[in-house]
Design a protein around this nucleic acid. Structure first.
Lengths: 142, 142
DNA sequence: CCTTTTACTTATCATTTGATAATTAATGAT
DNA sequence: ATCATTAATTATCAAATGATAAGTAAAAGG
């Protein structure tokens, strides 16, 4: 196995993944939030509850900028902040009802486009895709 | 095959791919260019020669903003513009020597990190990864 | 020819994002 | 009790990006 070839293949896939992600998500997000805010909400959606520090780490942004964006999301009533009862410096961020609704809507659009993308795949194709997703998730994109 | 489960698995992989991409590429790019400029150079690298219109389409930015960024890249001597002899409205963009050097350096850093990531993979793992990349490339991220 | 379309450019403005420093409040360590 | 550390906030500034409008030059289509 030539690792150089594997590298190139991987780069090609990365490029394709980014292109397809854009196709799946374009116009999915509400216009009331910025791209960064959408990414934050997406992260909260799949990982809630999370702390501002978690968001800062995972989204690669400074605590100050994270705090600013969370404040804006809070002002738009898309998230709730809950203080930790043990360590009162900490906060837990969750989606509000509005936030959930907004993300459900966005995810529904993305799912529709995803289903359209695999529309013509056979049963065997789907199983191969499923298996390939597992392998890459565990062995490469862990 | 439950397509809903497949969708969720796919979203999880997309998230992982974006995280890993960030890990592989962070600090790989020269500090003399902006993220958007790096993405443009990356696209030129794998697809050259390309026209400004190609870049505009594929990077999802307006022609005017594309033109501005290409001008900056040109001023930094990272790209060359070549006019089409047949249709003098058209241009072909290629990397300059400096541009190639800059991208080679960036790709080398990314490759090192990639190799480190698959350091502990067995021969069988690598073959599975290779096969999985092929499948996803052709059947999902086409 | 004359008009329309295409490819690209320039200029300008608003918004978003990134970076930095200073501050508050709670906790941990000695 | 004091000092250091942690978690988060606020304020401010600069830079990058996105959006829009107007303009140039070449080509294409009557």
């Amino acid at each position: 196995m030539d690792k150089k070839i594997l590298f190139n293949k991987c780069i090609t896939l990365l490029t394709s993944v980014h292109r397809v992600t854009h196709e799946l998500t374009q116009n999915a997000k509400s216009e009331s939030i910025t791209p960064v805010q959408y990414k934050i909400l997406e992260y909260i959606t799949v990982s809630q509850p999370v702390t501002p520090s978690d968001i800062s780490d995972c989204q690669h942004m400074s605590m100050s900028n994270t705090s600013r964006e969370l404040k804006k999301l809070s002002e738009k009533n898309l998230i709730k902040k809950i203080s930790d009862t043990e360590d009162r410096r900490k906060q837990y961020i969750c989606l509000s009802k509005d936030g959930e609704a907004l993300m459900n809507e966005a995810f529904a659009k993305v799912e529709l486009r995803f289903l359209d993308r695999i529309r013509n795949a056979s049963k065997e194709d789907l199983q191969e895709i499923d298996r390939a997703l597992d392998i890459l998730q565990t062995k490469l994109f862990y």
